[in-house]
Design a binder for these strands. Sequence first.
DNA 1: TGCCTATTTGGTAAAATAGCCAAATATTAA
DNA 2: TTAATATTTGGCTATTTTACCAAATAGGCA
Lengths: 113, 113
Amino acid sequence: MDKKEWSVFEARAKIIKALSHPARLFIVEELQNGELCVNELRDMIGFDMSTISKHLSILKNAGIVDDRKEGTTSFYYLRVPCILKFFGCIREVMESNARQSNEIMKSCNLKFK
Amino acid sequence: MDKKEWSVFEARAKIIKALSHPARLFIVEELQNGELCVNELRDMIGFDMSTISKHLSILKNAGIVDDRKEGTTSFYYLRVPCILKFFGCIREVMESNARQSNEIMKSCNLKFK
DNA sequence: TGCCTATTTGGTAAAATAGCCAAATATTAA
DNA sequence: TTAATATTTGGCTATTTTACCAAATAGGCA
C-alpha cells in the first residue's frame, strides 16, 4: 500500500483510538447532555483528576471535544455530535455477539440463567 | 460509577479498540467488497502474514468479522456491516478538524499551498 | 507417507498507554 | 500579596500493544 494512502488510515485510526477507552466513551456519552468540567467528570468516573484531564486532552487532540475556559474552570463539550451515531453501531455488534453466544449455548443444550 | 455500568463501557471500548489500528481499519474497509483471505490482505497491506493473522483475530474476537475455512484457506468477511457507518462520522471529524486548522491558518494570515 | 501451501501460535523486544503522585500554572478572593 | 481552587504537566511504573521470526498446525496432493 502506498504511504499516502496508509497515512489516511492512520489519521482515521487516531480518531477511533481516542474513543477506545471506557472512561473516554463515558465522557463522550455524558457530554451529549451538555458541557461538563473536569471536576464533575472526576466525581462521576472516580479516577484521579489528572487522569481525567489527560483523557480529555486525548479527546480534544482528536478533535472530538473542545473546551471553553471560565475562570479557572475548563468546560468541555462535544465538538462533533455525529460521534453519537457510533454507539448505535457498537450496540448492534454487541447484540450480534450475544445472539451468537446464545446459539452456541443452545447447540450445547445450555441455557442462560 | 458502579461496577456493572463500568463494564458496559469496557465492552463497548473493546469493540472500538478493535477498530483503532490502521491495518484493521483497512481490512474492514476492504471486506466491504467481499471476503478475502489472509494471503490477499498480506499482499495489500504488506505486513508479515502472522501480523495480519493476529489483526484478523482481534477483529474476529470483537465480533466484527468472522471466517470461513475452505481447505487450508481462511476467508474472512464482515459480520456487522453497520461498522461502515463509522467511516462517515470519522470523515466528519476529520473535515471538522481541517476546517478548524484552516481557520487558525487564516487568523495568522497564512494559506494552504 | 511426505511435501507444499495457508494459517496460526509462541516468543521477544520496542513502543505506546494508563494510572497515580507531586509539582507547576492560572484565576479568583481575601 | 497570600491563600484557595481548578486544571494541567512531568515523572514514574506497570501493563498492553505491535511487529517480526521461528515453529507448530492442518489440508490437499503426488
